[in-house]
Protein backbone atom coordinates (compact mmCIF):
# COMPACT_ATOMS: atom_id res chain seq x y z
CA UNK A 1 0.00 0.00 0.00
CA UNK A 2 1.37 3.42 -0.90
CA UNK A 3 1.85 6.02 1.83
CA UNK A 4 -0.92 8.64 1.77
CA UNK A 5 0.15 12.19 1.06
CA UNK A 6 -1.68 13.33 4.18
CA UNK A 7 -2.74 11.27 7.12
CA UNK A 8 -4.59 12.79 10.05
CA UNK A 9 -4.99 10.52 13.06
CA UNK A 10 -7.25 11.28 16.00
CA UNK A 11 -6.50 15.00 15.77
CA UNK A 12 -8.09 17.07 18.54
CA UNK A 13 -7.48 20.76 18.99
CA UNK A 14 -8.68 23.34 21.50
CA UNK A 15 -8.74 27.11 21.33
CA UNK A 16 -9.25 29.09 24.52
CA UNK A 17 -10.46 25.94 26.26
CA UNK A 18 -13.08 25.17 23.61
CA UNK A 19 -12.77 22.17 21.31
CA UNK A 20 -12.19 23.14 17.67
CA UNK A 21 -11.38 19.71 16.29
CA UNK A 22 -12.39 16.43 17.94
CA UNK A 23 -10.79 13.12 17.06
CA UNK A 24 -10.49 13.89 13.34
CA UNK A 25 -9.08 11.06 11.26
CA UNK A 26 -8.69 11.26 7.50
CA UNK A 27 -6.41 10.32 4.63
CA UNK A 28 -5.65 12.01 1.34
CA UNK A 29 -3.82 10.11 -1.40
CA UNK A 30 -1.25 11.77 -3.65
CA UNK A 31 -2.95 13.42 -6.63
CA UNK A 32 -6.38 13.38 -5.01
CA UNK A 33 -8.72 16.36 -4.73
CA UNK A 34 -10.51 16.25 -1.40
CA UNK A 35 -13.09 18.83 -0.36
CA UNK A 36 -13.69 19.74 3.27
CA UNK A 37 -17.29 20.73 3.65
CA UNK A 38 -19.18 22.08 6.62
CA UNK A 39 -20.88 25.10 8.16
CA UNK A 40 -18.76 28.01 9.38
CA UNK A 41 -17.16 27.24 12.71
CA UNK A 42 -17.12 23.49 12.01
CA UNK A 43 -13.31 23.39 12.03
CA UNK A 44 -12.57 23.14 8.28
CA UNK A 45 -10.08 26.00 8.22
CA UNK A 46 -8.53 24.95 11.52
CA UNK A 47 -7.94 21.49 10.08
CA UNK A 48 -6.36 22.94 6.95
CA UNK A 49 -4.09 25.21 9.03
CA UNK A 50 -2.88 22.19 11.00
CA UNK A 51 -1.66 20.57 7.78
CA UNK A 52 1.00 23.26 7.17
CA UNK A 53 1.45 24.13 10.84
CA UNK A 54 0.05 27.65 10.69
CA UNK A 55 -1.63 26.15 13.74
CA UNK A 56 0.49 23.63 15.64
CA UNK A 57 -1.14 20.18 15.80
CA UNK A 58 -0.24 17.79 18.63
CA UNK A 59 2.64 15.41 17.81
CA UNK A 60 1.76 12.14 16.04
CA UNK A 61 -1.53 13.47 14.70
CA UNK A 62 -0.67 14.82 11.23
CA UNK A 63 1.61 13.04 8.74
CA UNK A 64 2.88 14.20 5.37
CA UNK A 65 4.26 11.40 3.17
CA UNK A 66 4.43 9.28 6.30
CA UNK A 67 6.41 11.78 8.41
CA UNK A 68 5.00 13.36 11.57
CA UNK A 69 4.92 17.00 10.46
CA UNK A 70 5.77 18.30 13.94
CA UNK A 71 9.21 16.69 13.50
CA UNK A 72 9.84 18.33 10.11
CA UNK A 73 11.46 21.70 9.45
CA UNK A 74 8.41 23.96 9.45
CA UNK A 75 9.63 26.29 6.69
CA UNK A 76 10.55 23.40 4.38
CA UNK A 77 7.16 21.79 5.07
CA UNK A 78 5.30 24.97 4.15
CA UNK A 79 7.23 25.28 0.88
CA UNK A 80 6.01 21.83 -0.09
CA UNK A 81 2.39 22.78 0.60
CA UNK A 82 1.11 25.80 -1.28
CA UNK A 83 -1.72 27.57 0.53
CA UNK A 84 -4.32 29.88 -0.96
CA UNK A 85 -6.55 31.85 1.38
CA UNK A 86 -10.01 33.35 1.10
CA UNK A 87 -8.39 36.78 0.62
CA UNK A 88 -5.57 36.78 -1.97
CA UNK A 89 -3.43 38.81 0.51
CA UNK A 90 -1.00 39.92 -2.19
CA UNK A 91 2.03 41.92 -1.13
CA UNK A 92 2.39 45.52 -2.35
CA UNK A 93 4.30 45.62 -5.64
CA UNK A 94 4.00 43.91 -9.00
CA UNK A 95 2.54 40.53 -9.93
CA UNK A 96 6.08 39.29 -10.71
CA UNK A 97 7.37 40.38 -7.30
CA UNK A 98 4.58 38.45 -5.62
CA UNK A 99 5.29 35.31 -7.61
CA UNK A 100 9.03 35.57 -6.93
CA UNK A 101 8.52 35.95 -3.15
CA UNK A 102 8.70 32.28 -2.10
CA UNK A 103 11.81 31.31 -4.13
CA UNK A 104 13.37 34.66 -3.11
CA UNK A 105 13.24 33.58 0.55
CA UNK A 106 15.66 30.83 -0.44
CA UNK A 107 17.81 33.28 -2.38
CA UNK A 108 16.59 31.94 -5.72
CA UNK A 109 15.71 34.48 -8.43
CA UNK A 110 13.03 33.60 -10.98
CA UNK A 111 13.64 34.38 -14.64
CA UNK A 112 11.01 36.19 -16.71
CA UNK A 113 10.33 32.88 -18.47
CA UNK A 114 9.75 31.07 -15.18
CA UNK A 115 7.34 33.79 -14.07
CA UNK A 116 5.52 33.60 -17.41
CA UNK A 117 5.26 29.81 -17.03
CA UNK A 118 3.81 30.15 -13.52
CA UNK A 119 1.32 32.75 -14.76
CA UNK A 120 0.35 30.37 -17.56
CA UNK A 121 -0.30 27.60 -15.00
CA UNK A 122 -2.72 29.96 -13.28
CA UNK A 123 -4.28 30.88 -16.65
CA UNK A 124 -2.89 34.38 -16.68
CA UNK A 125 -1.22 36.09 -19.67
CA UNK A 126 2.53 36.73 -19.28
CA UNK A 127 1.89 40.46 -19.81
CA UNK A 128 0.43 40.59 -16.29
CA UNK A 129 3.89 40.14 -14.73
CA UNK A 130 4.66 43.85 -14.63
CA UNK A 131 1.21 44.92 -13.37
CA UNK A 132 0.87 46.44 -9.91
CA UNK A 133 -1.33 44.15 -7.82
CA UNK A 134 -3.62 47.10 -7.05
CA UNK A 135 -4.85 46.96 -10.67
CA UNK A 136 -6.09 43.36 -10.51
CA UNK A 137 -9.68 42.20 -10.24
CA UNK A 138 -10.60 39.83 -7.40
CA UNK A 139 -10.42 36.77 -9.65
CA UNK A 140 -7.08 37.85 -11.16
CA UNK A 141 -5.64 38.53 -7.71
CA UNK A 142 -6.68 35.06 -6.55
CA UNK A 143 -5.05 33.44 -9.57
CA UNK A 144 -1.86 35.42 -8.89
CA UNK A 145 -1.92 34.05 -5.35
CA UNK A 146 -2.21 30.53 -6.83
CA UNK A 147 0.78 31.25 -9.11
CA UNK A 148 2.65 32.60 -6.07
CA UNK A 149 1.99 29.36 -4.19
CA UNK A 150 3.07 27.27 -7.23
CA UNK A 151 6.40 29.12 -7.43
CA UNK A 152 7.69 27.03 -4.51
CA UNK A 153 7.05 23.91 -6.58
CA UNK A 154 4.75 22.34 -3.96
CA UNK A 155 3.41 18.79 -4.01
CA UNK A 156 0.02 19.91 -2.64
CA UNK A 157 -2.32 22.88 -2.58
CA UNK A 158 -4.31 23.81 0.52
CA UNK A 159 -7.23 25.97 -0.56
CA UNK A 160 -9.13 27.84 2.17
CA UNK A 161 -12.36 28.97 0.48
CA UNK A 162 -10.40 30.68 -2.30
CA UNK A 163 -13.49 31.42 -4.37
CA UNK A 164 -15.88 32.68 -1.73
CA UNK A 165 -15.27 36.35 -2.56
CA UNK A 166 -15.49 35.84 -6.33
CA UNK A 167 -18.34 36.12 -8.83
CA UNK A 168 -19.62 32.90 -10.48
CA UNK A 169 -17.54 33.34 -13.65
CA UNK A 170 -14.33 33.89 -11.69
CA UNK A 171 -15.20 30.94 -9.45
CA UNK A 172 -15.60 28.68 -12.46
CA UNK A 173 -12.27 29.92 -13.82
CA UNK A 174 -10.47 29.05 -10.54
CA UNK A 175 -12.10 25.58 -10.57
CA UNK A 176 -10.85 24.96 -14.09
CA UNK A 177 -7.38 26.12 -13.11
CA UNK A 178 -7.21 23.81 -10.10
CA UNK A 179 -8.44 20.81 -12.09
CA UNK A 180 -5.80 21.52 -14.72
CA UNK A 181 -3.07 21.79 -12.06
CA UNK A 182 -3.94 18.38 -10.70
CA UNK A 183 -3.98 16.96 -14.22
CA UNK A 184 -0.72 18.55 -15.36
CA UNK A 185 1.33 18.67 -12.17
CA UNK A 186 -0.25 15.80 -10.25
CA UNK A 187 -0.88 18.11 -7.29
CA UNK A 188 -2.77 16.88 -4.27
CA UNK A 189 -5.52 19.37 -3.42
CA UNK A 190 -7.39 19.88 -0.16
CA UNK A 191 -10.15 22.36 -0.74
CA UNK A 192 -12.24 23.97 1.98
CA UNK A 193 -15.49 25.16 0.48
CA UNK A 194 -19.17 25.67 1.09
CA UNK A 195 -20.14 25.63 -2.60
CA UNK A 196 -21.88 22.41 -3.67
CA UNK A 197 -21.09 23.16 -7.32
CA UNK A 198 -17.39 23.04 -6.43
CA UNK A 199 -17.73 19.80 -4.53
CA UNK A 200 -19.67 18.13 -7.34
CA UNK A 201 -17.35 19.34 -10.06
CA UNK A 202 -13.88 18.92 -8.59
CA UNK A 203 -13.90 16.57 -5.58
CA UNK A 204 -12.76 12.96 -5.73
CA UNK A 205 -13.82 12.61 -2.13
CA UNK A 206 -15.55 14.75 0.47
CA UNK A 207 -15.27 15.01 4.24
CA UNK A 208 -18.13 16.72 6.04
CA UNK A 209 -17.19 18.39 9.31
CA UNK A 210 -19.80 19.21 11.95
CA UNK A 211 -18.77 20.68 15.31
CA UNK A 212 -15.14 19.76 14.75
CA UNK A 213 -15.86 16.09 13.97
CA UNK A 214 -15.86 14.16 10.73
CA UNK A 215 -19.59 13.54 10.28
CA UNK A 216 -19.55 11.99 6.82
CA UNK A 217 -17.16 10.97 4.07
CA UNK A 218 -17.21 9.47 0.62
CA UNK A 219 -17.36 10.38 -3.05
CA UNK A 220 -19.68 13.27 -4.01
CA UNK A 221 -21.86 10.89 -6.02
CA UNK A 222 -22.37 8.61 -3.03
CA UNK A 223 -22.92 11.39 -0.53
CA UNK A 224 -25.06 13.68 -2.62
CA UNK A 225 -26.92 11.24 -4.83
CA UNK A 226 -30.73 11.48 -4.97
CA UNK A 227 -31.25 8.38 -2.81
CA UNK A 228 -28.57 9.29 -0.28
CA UNK A 229 -29.47 9.36 3.40
CA UNK A 230 -26.03 10.72 4.25
CA UNK A 231 -25.54 13.79 6.43
CA UNK A 232 -23.78 15.50 3.54
CA UNK A 233 -27.00 15.42 1.52
CA UNK A 234 -28.87 16.90 4.50
CA UNK A 235 -26.22 19.57 4.83
CA UNK A 236 -26.42 20.34 1.11
CA UNK A 237 -30.19 20.56 1.31
CA UNK A 238 -29.89 22.92 4.25
CA UNK A 239 -27.61 25.12 2.21
CA UNK A 240 -30.15 25.28 -0.59
CA UNK A 241 -33.10 26.20 1.57
Amino acid sequence: MTTPRFQVQHLSLERNGRPVLQDVTLEVAAGEIVCLLGPSGSGKSSLLRCLNRLTEPPPQSVFHDGADITTLDVLALRRRLGMVFQKPALFPGSVAENIAYGPGLDGRMLTADEIAALLALADMPAAYAARPVTELSGGEAQRVSIARALANNPDSLLLDEPTSALDPAARRHVRETVKKLRRELGLTVIWVTHYMEEVLEVADRVYLLLDGRVADQGSPADLLGPDSDHKTAEFAAGLLE
Partner: peptide
Protein backbone atom coordinates in the same frame (compact mmCIF):
# COMPACT_ATOMS: atom_id res chain seq x y z
CA UNK B 1 -2.39 39.35 9.54
CA UNK B 2 -3.60 38.06 6.14
CA UNK B 3 -0.40 39.15 4.36
CA UNK B 4 1.74 37.90 7.24
CA UNK B 5 0.16 34.46 7.17
CA UNK B 6 0.40 34.38 3.38
CA UNK B 7 4.15 35.01 3.73
CA UNK B 8 4.47 32.37 6.47
CA UNK B 9 2.64 29.87 4.26
CA UNK B 10 5.18 30.56 1.50
CA UNK B 11 8.00 29.59 3.86
CA UNK B 12 8.92 32.96 5.36
CA UNK B 13 10.09 33.15 8.97
CA UNK B 14 8.04 35.26 11.36
CA UNK B 15 10.65 37.97 11.08
CA UNK B 16 10.63 37.93 7.27
CA UNK B 17 6.83 37.95 7.17
CA UNK B 18 6.58 40.97 9.48
CA UNK B 19 9.63 42.87 8.23
CA UNK B 20 7.83 45.48 6.05
Amino acid sequence: SAEIEAALALGATGRQSAQP
